[in-house]
Nucleic acid binder design. Structure first.
Lengths: 371, 371
DNA sequence: TGTTAGCACTCACCAAGTACGAGTGCTAAC
DNA sequence: GTTAGCACTCGTACTTGGTGAGTGCTAACA
């Protein structure tokens, strides 16, 4: 990169300043605030050069400089100091996870809340999901009353799903227990295709292995697995809307622009988070790569996300369960902090899952936690 | 109510018009649009009278009339025509619930989504909850690996909860099954205080009934029940933010006011829905009374909710499980439609739960569904 | 007594005009 | 290569005047 030391410094300062204030950065401001030892005119010349190189822009002639996507990219790649969260913050976060350690379904919510609060932006988290296909572990049948039975399905990875099944005729508890045990044994460790295979084979046997009712139950099991696999694709939990909307981009009072812009942006942000459009595409990508991914503004595949950046990381246990978590916000984002937050929470979640699975943690690389 | 026919008509029309357009209503508009057969001056006189009575206001001298909270109240109580959702809408809604009938945990989400879409406002739904204390039904222990076991707890009412428990030493599946069966039997049908009693009694027996590990498991069961009871208090699921924010109150383009107002309102709405402040107080109230409740603007106990109205109804099965669902939006709300929507969805949810419980449906009164 | 035409009055909304100031780009001197 | 100086640009804020919607009041009318 043919960028002199000084230009790198100026680019870095412009970005830091802009991220902090959300206001275009003037040459004079930099000189005054950071005691650059040169005059504002010199800084202006450098800024003009950085603009030619595509790292900065101008809204109009008499406005300060603003970083471009390329500018942020260069910053993230070369200029940024890789910081870690403070010990106090790390402790607090660990403590919160510790408090809900027994309740798997709380982890995702907590991760979303903590990400949002720590990075002061919206967060997104996908639940931990089997790296390969969902595999059956155990079935329990519990009668709710004489004509309704509850299927409680446990899958590998501690995933529990429930499903109700109306009964034609009442069944005794022993009966149900026996049937559940039989099915549990028969389907143990099978994935959906495995169960289909099994059924296909059984169908040919003349003294049928499964009775009519057992078939019905298995059918419901399969349907539940099917619907879970489908839902899992698009399940993105999101939090921190309020945190993100506290960024000046969405507040007309601070950003001097038209207040209408703020309203439009707000609606737009809501739609993105609600629909998950533009986000869904990022998930597989994040699952495929290790480490923290940063997608800046126009680098997003969809045009909708042009004004947003996403910081993503995978979490989970290798070859068992994995998920994705991250932060989303305006391109004017405190990247160092977002990145360390995402990295840290990914490592915490990975540790938790590793404990659950009795395996090595496999979070975003690096970032050991000295506690 | 000493209100002449004509004044009632005018009040009704003002409200209808204002709800539709979100713009202050001029006397001339009413005359033109509804062919009142009198002059605008007469209407103005009547409006002035309605203003004296507290049913209408004025932002400033030369602006049209706007209903007050008292005006809406009178409308809801005396003027409103009680409509029902169209057959097509009812069919579509039933159909959607039919599609997820087996998956209890989807009901709440679906109800929230449907309420929001149908009433074009935000919705809130509390999950069905045992009318009295949570009662234990069944426990299953599933080993995840040699040093981690998953407790799957089933409570009366088909509520399932999971909890992990680290093991000191590995246990065989038979061992776990035996222990789970023992505990399931011992705790069957007990509520939290009941379990505490049981433990207290057992403690005195000299050859202890439960081993150390069994005590640990029971302890976790109790903790899970405890945390569920606590969480249930404040669990309010909410949806339809986007629908509500599509109301002109939040869009600067339509409402002529300052765009900054719209932004402020948006933030305010977000905070209310996220924190549940001001909403929590309404739930017990709605649980206590049958029928649809309408709380208009300043009638809310908290000042925060001054500009919002809430339409709430209880749903569920008497003496078994009940929940609350409703719509929240600006006081300028299509009350007839909101009310029929809430009433209808309450009845659908109640039917579903009744089926699950093999009991009589006990929704908001009235509103039989002819399908 | 209720209704209505007429009219003065109020006030939000809009467009145009003006002044201000922050910040740049350029030039010429160092 | 650096910098002082200065003209130029353009957003922001504030003022002004005009317009129109809508009311409130009054006086005449049925």
């Amino acid at each position: 990169m043919g960028l002199t030391e000084r230009r790198q410094l100026i680019l870095k300062l412009v970005i830091q300043e802009f991220v902090e204030t959300a206001l275009p950065v003037a040459s004079e401001t930099l000189v005054r605030k950071y005691r650059l030892g040169v005059s504002s005119a010199t800084v202006r010349n450098e800024m003009a050069a950085l603009e030619d190189l595509g790292y900065l822009t101008h809204l109009h002639t008499s406005a300060g400089r603003v970083p471009t996507d390329a500018g942020y990219r260069f910053f993230v790649e070369n200029l940024m100091e890789r910081t870690a969260l403070s010990l106090a913050e790390r402790r607090m976060i660990r403590h919160q996870f510790y408090q809900v350690r027994g309740e798997l379904d709380q982890w995702v919510h907590l991760a979303g809340a903590v990400l949002a609060r720590t990075a002061q932006n919206a967060s997104l988290v996908t639940p931990p999901r089997a790296a390969d296909l969902l595999r059956f572990r155990h079935l329990e049948l519990v009668a709710i009353h004489e004509s309704m039975v509850l299927l409680v399905l446990v899958f590998h990875g501690g995933i529990v799903k429930q499903q109700t099944l109306p009964l034609e005729s009442a069944r005794s508890p022993e009966d149900l227990r026996r049937i559940a045990a039989r099915i549990s044994d028969a389907l143990a460790d099978l994935s959906l295709p495995g169960i289909e295979d099994l059924l296909a084979r059984e169908l040919k046997q003349i003294p049928a292995t499964f009775g009519e009712f057992e078939r019905l139950v298995i059918d419901h099991v399969m349907r539940a697995m099917q619907s879970f696999e489908e839902q899992a694709q698009e399940q993105i939990y999101s939090d921190g809307l309020l945190e993100m909307l506290s960024q000046p981009e969405f507040l007309p009072s601070l950003a001097r622009e038209d207040a209408e812009r703020a309203v439009e942006r707000t609606r737009h942000a809501l739609e993105i988070l609600k629909s998950g459009r533009g986000l869904g595409a990022l998930i597989p990508q994040a699952l495929a790569s290790s480490g923290v991914q940063v997608i800046i503004g126009g680098e997003n595949s969809t045009n909708e996300m042009r004004e947003y950046s996403v910081v993503l990381a995978r979490y989970g246990v290798d070859r068992a369960v994995v998920g994705v978590l991250g932060v989303i916000g305006p391109t004017r984002m405190a990247y160092p902090r977002s990145i360390s937050t995402v990295r840290y929470i990914s490592s915490v979640m990975s540790d938790l899952l590793a404990e659950l699975y009795n395996a090595e943690s496999r979070s975003a690389e690096g970032d050991v936690d000295p506690e």
